[in-house]
Design a protein around this nucleic acid. Structure first.
Lengths: 144, 144
DNA sequence: TTCGCTGCAAATCTTTTGCAAGGCC
DNA sequence: GGCCTTGCAAAAGATTTGCAGCGAA
């Protein structure tokens, strides 16, 4: 299972990497985790993994294209599995609740704008901030 | 001139604030400055202003709506005068060159997407990353 | 004179790095 | 065994804060 994924991208299969990948895979709806979040979950699970390792592994995953690193307003990075759909994010300023979306119209405009300005498009980052009326903050894992 | 701006938003007119506002106003095409950039310019001008003050003043300006704070990929904040046009940014990954643009189509879609998902739109952040072929990096003030 | 403002130094927070020990192939 | 990984501690970089002194109104 997960092990294949690691080998595929040329990373040795080790316990910390497996555990971290597994945490990312099994994260539910609010699957945007900071390095600290991942670290805490590991500790909860009784794993002895250092925070530095979490950062190192997440960075390796990012370079391998397994994971996406996102920067929301507060200059803290959050990580999520890279599903390849290149979606963007809606963030609730009150609860931290995050919703994903893909909008073809915006995608197109971004491509055009890059071209019009002589930029060789690499990627983009769009985050929409707002407040969710139906404030439920279901699981308390919202970003502070 | 600048003094009015400060009074208007309820900030006492002081030398550091005036100087910093002036630096932001007179910044040329590449007017996206980090706190450090502003600090260095102050030092160049022979002003004795602490870096902490630069951060404090920029944050006050941001809260007063005079300045916008942007977070590009590297988790470093850059500041620019808030002209009210709510433009977005194109950033060259090689030179750090920044271009601004406003796209009505994207603006509309963002409004709709927020509404469709039950979010009370507050603001958004769109940065397009790419590489500029015509690599000239004219003034060397590109982000590292 | 009175508070708000500032400079300096120290603290904080997130992320990275050096190094010796340990683990995978 | 050899090389890649890891944990720990320390370093680094950006930003914030405490506090005593200074300055605008």
């Amino acid at each position: 299972m997960s092990g294949h994924e690691l080998k595929r991208v040329g990373l040795k299969v080790t316990l910390p990497r497996l555990k971290i990948l597994q945490i990312l895979e099994s994260a539910g709806d609010q699957h945007h985790l900071t390095a600290e979040d991942v670290y805490k979950i590991l500790i909860e699970q009784g794993e002895e993994v250092g925070l530095a390792t979490v950062y190192r592994v997440l960075t390796q995953f990012e370079q391998a294209g397994i994971v996406r690193r996102l920067n929301f307003e507060n200059n803290i990075s959050v990580f999520e599995l890279d599903t390849g759909d290149n979606h963007d994010h809606l963030v609730c300023l009150k609860s931290g609740f995050v919703k994903e979306f893909v909008d073809p119209v915006i995608e197109d405009r971004i491509r055009d704008i890059a071209k019009e300005n002589g930029y060789n498009l690499s990627n983009h980052n769009l985050v929409i901030y707002g407040t969710l009326e139906s404030e439920m903050s279901k699981d308390g894992r919202g970003r502070k």
